[in-house]
């Protein structure tokens, strides 16, 4: 058995009202999207979520045997996220780092990969999802481009785990409709077609394999749109825990941010499922919550959602651009 012994999320402070984006861009908008501050990047946001997860785990950063990250928006082809998060946490030397990307399935693949590491090495592993979706003013989904991070610490066992990981499933179909090149807006394609042949074929099959007959009461899903996320959970009769209304599209990180939110708000003894659908298929992870659910510290996902400052459409676009200064002088 592998358990989740710590969970944490992170959401940037700034939010853009999607109706303000719609007013300037066209279309309609409801809810808000998180906007990273100018001085935030994938590594810093991942570290915030990881710090929160580790603070609730009975393990120090230096004791981690592996760090696995999932992201569909890492701007670098070569640079990576996992090794930098590991370094910041003090996990250096004989530490496995893995950067998963290319599909929102990276979230459940990261959980599966970390679980296998824990079983094989009897050592703790950290899983972090982090995304800052590009906001392209020419794209229809510019208002929904969100940002966030989520993390869990997996261990062979723990005194008071938040959850037991009970099952994993995947469905590789090779189906791709929604896709995106670096620096370009997503090609969203035909949502109905994707609903039927993409998510409709992959997500239920993966979920069934993970649940193995268990009936979940709570669920989270990562998918390219809110509609596809809902469809990814079409086969299960469970309450969906989602931060999408407040955070926007958080890419692969949505699965881990929402999982942290689920574990902070769940009762012990609940069956839950995490489903990630993206290019190529779907992955699913089943879990049973335990006594370590909830949070006693101040850095809960709920706090991050409440603590916010409104920002403008212009900054929603501008803050995602890389900073171009080489040093700030301190007195």
């Amino acid at each position: 058995m592998v358990v989740i012994d710590g969970h944490g999320g992170y959401v940037p402070l700034y939010r853009v009202d999607r109706s303000e984006v719609a007013a300037q861009h066209g279309g309609r908008g409801r809810g808000e999207s998180a906007v990273p501050a100018r001085d935030e990047n994938h590594v810093t946001m991942a570290c915030e979520a990881a710090d929160n997860a580790l603070a609730r785990a009975d393990v120090a950063g230096a004791d981690l045997g592996a760090v696995v990250t999932a992201s569909v928006s890492d701007p670098f082809a070569e640079h990576g996220i996992a090794a930098h998060v590991a370094y910041r946490l003090g996990a250096t030397g004989d530490v496995r780092t893995t950067d998963l990307r290319g599909s929102r399935r990276a979230a459940t693949d990261a959980l599966a990969s970390a679980r296998e590491f824990v079983v094989a090495n009897d050592a703790p592993a950290l899983v972090v999802g982090v995304d800052v979706l590009p906001a392209d003013p020419d794209s229809d989904d510019v208002a929904e481009a969100g940002a966030g991070a989520g993390a869990v610490v997996l261990r062979p066992e723990a005194d008071e785990p938040a959850a037991d990981l009970t099952g994993f499933g995947q469905a590789t179909t090779g189906f791709v409709e929604h896709h995106r090149r670096h620096g370009e807006a997503a090609e969203t394609g035909d949502a109905k077609f994707e609903g039927r042949h993409g998510v409709g074929e992959a997500a239920p099959a993966a979920t069934e394999r993970a649940l193995d007959g268990a009936a979940p009461v709570k669920a989270v899903a990562a998918a390219p749109s809110g509609r596809l996320a809902g469809a990814a959970l079409g086969g299960v009769d469970a309450e969906q825990v989602s931060t999408r209304e407040q955070v926007g599209d958080a890419g692969a990180a949505a699965a881990l941010l929402d999982l942290a939110h689920l574990l902070e708000t769940a009762d012990a003894g609940d069956t839950a499922v995490v489903v990630a659908y993206g290019a190529g298929g779907a992955g699913a992870v089943a879990l049973q919550t335990a006594d370590g659910v909830g949070t006693t510290d101040a850095r809960s996902v709920a706090t991050y959602l409440d603590a916010k400052e409104e920002t403008t459409y212009a900054k929603h676009l501008e803050y995602r651009e890389p900073v171009e200064y080489e040093g700030v002088k301190t007195p």
């Binding site: 990047n41 810093t44 910041r88 890389p322």
Partner: peptide, 22 residues
């Protein structure tokens, strides 16, 4: 932990301070 400056395209992260988010 924030991006302090960039070295070319590479972000250099270190510490800033803020009032606690809560």
């Amino acid at each position: 932990f924030r991006e302090l400056f960039s070295d070319g395209e590479r972000p250099i992260n270190s510490f800033k301070f803020s009032v606690p988010r809560e």
